[in-house]
Every structure is written in structure tokens, then in C-alpha cells.
């Protein structure tokens, strides 16, 4: 899994597309691509460069910078035993990126989690719901402007509880 081999293979697969190599502390091949071409890049990585497995889909909130979110994908190739990371920067207003669940089915939960935590929409995801927080929750916890202690963490429970008490009162 020499880094040069991976770089050449990926460069060949991404022929004709613009990308920028990012310097990382772990030495993994990291591509920064414009958000307009990210879907094509993912398709090529899947089809031509042989990255068979999606390791993670997540985001980094750079608040208060604008554009605000870095969306990160990371892939693993079993045949070549190497990894690649793809990053793109998108704006904070109505953030969305194309989905990759049709290429890697396993990205589904990761995308749902990313939507749940950052409010980033994955266009074309077949079932984009909240994953970890309850369905009625209205905030996005991993955004930097969300306090650690939460905003009305118990609202949904209290609503449910009030309703339940009211029902018992009526039936008694």
C-alpha cells in the first residue's frame, strides 16, 4: 500500500477532473474537490479506482467560517489495501451534497447520521431520516453553535408525558 501507487491510480481514475491534494498528518491520500464535481469523483473512485468499501461519511463544522461545512468521505480498497479520503466544502445555508448510497449501500446510515448531526441533506438518499436523535427533534447537535448541554433536551419527553397524564385523567 505505497502512497505513490494509490496516488497514481486515483489520478488516472480522476483524469480530467480538478482536485487538490491535501496534506494530512496520517499520510492518507486526501483529495479536496469542488462540490459541483464531487458526485463524479465518487463514481470514478467506485468504478475505476476500485474502492469497494465506504468507511465513513461525516462532516466538519468550520463555523463561523463560510462556506461552513467540510463533508468527508473515506473509502477502502481491499484489493489494493489502501484508503482514500475525499473532502468538499459546502455553504452553511441549506447545505446539501449528492448521496453515494447507490454506489456503496453501506453509506446509508453514515449519511443519515451526518444529516441528523449537521443538517446536511444528501440528495437522492432513499430514506433520509434522523438516525440517532428522536424524530421530532429540531436541532443539529454537532454544529458548533449548538451548546453541549443541548436546547430543550427534554421537550419531547415532557410533551409525551403531559399527553399521557391527560389520557389517564380522562379515563379514570
Amino acid at each position: 500500500m505505497t502512497a505513490t501507487n494509490t496516488r497514481e491510480r486515483v489520478a488516472a481514475a480522476l483524469e480530467g477532473l480538478t482536485f487538490e491534494l491535501v496534506d494530512t498528518r496520517d499520510g492518507m491520500l486526501t483529495l479536496r474537490v469542488p462540490s459541483a464535481t464531487v458526485r463524479t469523483v465518487l463514481e470514478r473512485l467506485h468504478g475505476r479506482a476500485g474502492f469497494e468499501q465506504n468507511t465513513l461519511v461525516t462532516a466538519v463544522d468550520r463555523f463561523p467560517e463560510e462556506p461552513r461545512f467540510d463533508v468527508i468521505w473515506q473509502f477502502l480498497s481491499y484489493d489494493h489495501n489502501d484508503r482514500v479520503r475525499v473532502e468538499t466544502r459546502i455553504s452553511g445555508a441549506n447545505p446539501s451534497v449528492p448521496t453515494c448510497t447507490d454506489l456503496w449501500s453501506g453509506a446509508s446510515f453514515s449519511e443519515r447520521e451526518c444529516f441528523d448531526m449537521f443538517g446536511i441533506r444528501f440528495d437522492g438518499h432513499p430514506d433520509l431520516r434522523r438516525l440517532l436523535m428522536p424524530q421530532g427533534y429540531t436541532h443539529f447537535p454537532l454544529r458548533k453553535d449548538f451548546p453541549h448541554g443541548g436546547i430543550e433536551p427534554d421537550r419531547l419527553y415532557r410533551e409525551w408525558d403531559a399527553k399521557r397524564r391527560a389520557e389517564w385523567g380522562a379515563n379514570a
Partner: peptide, 13 residues
């Protein structure tokens, strides 16, 4: 866990 998701003690419910 003093965080947004955790009940601060079951005695709240």
C-alpha cells in the same frame, strides 16, 4: 455525560 441527549438522573422521570 453532561450532554444534550442524556437524562440527568433517572429521578427526573
Amino acid at each position: 455525560y453532561d450532554s444534550y441527549a442524556v437524562v440527568q438522573g433517572v429521578d427526573s422521570i
